[in-house]
Simulated assay, not measured.
Amino acid sequence: MKGPAFLAEHTDVLRTKMGAAFPGSHAVFRGHDLHRDLMDMDWFALCAFGITGRKVPATQLRLMSTAWVSSSYPDARLWNNRVAALAGTARSTPNLAISAAQAISEATIYGRGNEFRALDFFLKTRQALDAGATLADHLEGFLREGGRMAGYGRPISTSDERMPLVLNLARELGLADGPYLAMAFEIDRYFESTGRPLRLNLSALLSAFAADFGWTPREFNMLLFTAFLAGMHPCYLEAADKPPGALFPVRCADVHYEGVAARHWPPA
């Protein structure tokens, strides 16, 4: 139902299954009393519960938390960290700086859009294989139609230093035997056999775990929201402690202009 009648049903009332705050009394969080029932959760577990509606097993949260830690590079040259640092050198407030850096962390190639597409691809690939397609035919057809392999290939380096850490922990936690993880490595081996520089990286690895955990692309996308956060704070702080404008200054002489030549403007 759409139109005025639909909107009228939602006028002057909030219809929600998620929760509500009752100041001075209590707060409801997905059907639970937040302060009575959920205070034994840590922050990440509560976020996961809020997103999925399920109490995510501690082993799964620990694996993802380790992946977050291993991705927290305090390097102001990285695309989203640079935004936090430039905001610091411009004397922005910390919250505005980090919020801006978080916003561009949705980048399609490097950021959160990458894992969203990787997880979606794994789920659709499983459907295609179950329908009788071979993995080689499915992959070649996907690439032939202009598809881009999210989570395979990496700029600058073909190896990913974070993967052994995450895989070793996954084995310790008993999480390394899922079918989607096996498929992710099967895809990696296929690309290696065809000579393509599309090697499995951490994005696809985590997306395969997410598929094995039963998370949807949107749930996983939201759970990944803080993955780079710990590396942003140091970049902001260091830039804010330097003189204004001292981060990555560029000399005018270093700018090589190839546009339209300067024109003479006669006086009026």
Rank of each mutant, 00 (worst) to 15 (best):
A208S: 14
L34T: 00
L181I: 10
S71T: 09
P243V: 12
A131L: 10
A239R: 05
P267T: 14
R91N: 10
A21N: 08
A184W: 02
A85Y: 05
I51V: 11
A45G: 12
G146L: 07
K17E: 15
T59C: 11
I51G: 00
L96P: 04
A253E: 15
D160M: 02
L86H: 03
P74A: 07
A58H: 06
Q102K: 04
P197Y: 09
D33M: 04
E238D: 15
M1H: 03
A227N: 08
A85K: 02
T226I: 07
A176R: 02
I109P: 00
V56M: 15
P197V: 09
A262S: 12
T93D: 15
L206Y: 03
H233R: 08
Q102P: 00
D188F: 06
L167P: 00
S25G: 01
W265R: 10
S65W: 13
A136N: 11
E115N: 10
A208L: 04
L143K: 08
E145Y: 01
R148E: 09
H32K: 04
D188Q: 09
A246L: 06
K242I: 00
D177A: 13
A21P: 00
T89K: 03
A240N: 11
M232F: 13
H256P: 00
S207P: 08
I104S: 06
F49T: 03
G113E: 12
G111Y: 05
P217W: 05
G214T: 01
A76P: 03
H233S: 02
V260E: 14
R117K: 06
M149T: 12
D120C: 02
S207I: 10
M39K: 04
G113R: 03
A27H: 10
F121Q: 12
L229S: 14
N201T: 08
L46E: 06
L96I: 13
S92R: 05
G31T: 03
E186I: 07
